[in-house]
Simulated scan of single mutants.
Amino acid sequence: MRTRPPSSTRYAPNRPTVRADRPSVAAAHGPIRFTELERGIEGISRRMLTLTLRNLERDGLVTRTVHPTVPPRVEYELTPAARELHETLQRLTDWAERNRTYVAEARAAYDELHAPDLADAGGV
């Protein structure tokens, strides 16, 4: 019996689902166990964490290692491609933080200057 692909890939099967998920960010500093991820990510259900990790593994962004112990110990770690992506996203986040005030001031100045235009155009 053939199973359906995950919903995140159903409509674009050849396109990787690259996201800055909390699990991938949490695994950025080395191998981490599932239970550590679960405890460290507030508000995520066990099911959602499992699905997210599975998608990240499928996309080649996370490796999953099962250690033959009782009970089994499972660790997740970012791949080199995911580390590169993490560094890129971190730089983008840093830029956004550094420029937050500038963007807010630019928006306020624009809105003040164009407020009559926006009212006349019906908000368009």
Rank of each mutant, 00 (worst) to 15 (best):
A26I: 02
S7M: 09
Y110T: 09
P23V: 03
G43V: 01
E77W: 00
L78R: 15
G60N: 06
A115E: 09
D120R: 15
E57L: 01
V103G: 00
P13K: 09
P71K: 02
R46E: 12
D111A: 09
G40W: 07
P16F: 03
A96H: 13
A119T: 04
T17Y: 15
E112Q: 07
T17S: 14
D120E: 14
V66M: 01
L49Q: 09
A109S: 12
P71M: 05
D111K: 00
P5H: 00
T69H: 07
R107M: 10
A121V: 01
D21Q: 13
R47K: 13
R15F: 11
R33Q: 15
T17P: 01
A12M: 11
A121D: 11
G43C: 05
G43Y: 02
L85D: 00
E87L: 12
P116G: 05
P13E: 14
N55H: 04
T93P: 00
L78G: 05
V74R: 03
P116I: 04
L78P: 06
R91C: 08
V124K: 03
H29S: 13
V124W: 06
P71D: 04
E87I: 11
V25D: 07
T93R: 15
E38D: 12
L37E: 06
E112H: 11
G122Y: 06
G123T: 06
T93S: 15
R83F: 07
N99T: 10
P71Y: 04
L113Y: 06
Y102C: 01
P6I: 04
H114M: 13
P68N: 11
R58G: 09
R46A: 12
R46P: 00
P68T: 09
S45D: 03
S7C: 07
P71A: 09
N55V: 03
Y76G: 08
T63A: 05
T9H: 13
R64V: 08
P5D: 02
G40E: 04
S7R: 14
R73N: 01
V124Y: 07
T63C: 05
D117S: 14
V70P: 01
E105S: 09
G43I: 02
R15A: 12
A96R: 15
R46W: 02
I44N: 10
R4M: 13
D94N: 11
H86I: 00
H114R: 12
E112Y: 01
Y102G: 01
R107H: 09
E105I: 00
T63M: 13
R54C: 04
A26F: 15
I44T: 14
M48H: 08
T17F: 13
D117H: 08
I41G: 08
T3N: 07
A104W: 02
N55G: 01
A20Q: 11
V103F: 14
L53G: 08
A121E: 07
A106M: 12
I44G: 01
A106D: 09
L49D: 02
E57H: 13
E112G: 11
L85N: 04
E97G: 05
N55F: 00
Y11I: 07
M1I: 09
D117Q: 02
L37A: 08
P6K: 03
R2T: 10
Y110K: 10
D94L: 07
E75D: 12
D94M: 05
E77F: 01
H86M: 08
H29M: 06
I32F: 05
E84S: 11
T52F: 03
P5Q: 06
Y110V: 07
P16V: 02
A119L: 14
E42C: 04
L118N: 04
A119N: 00
D21W: 14
V74D: 00
T9Q: 12
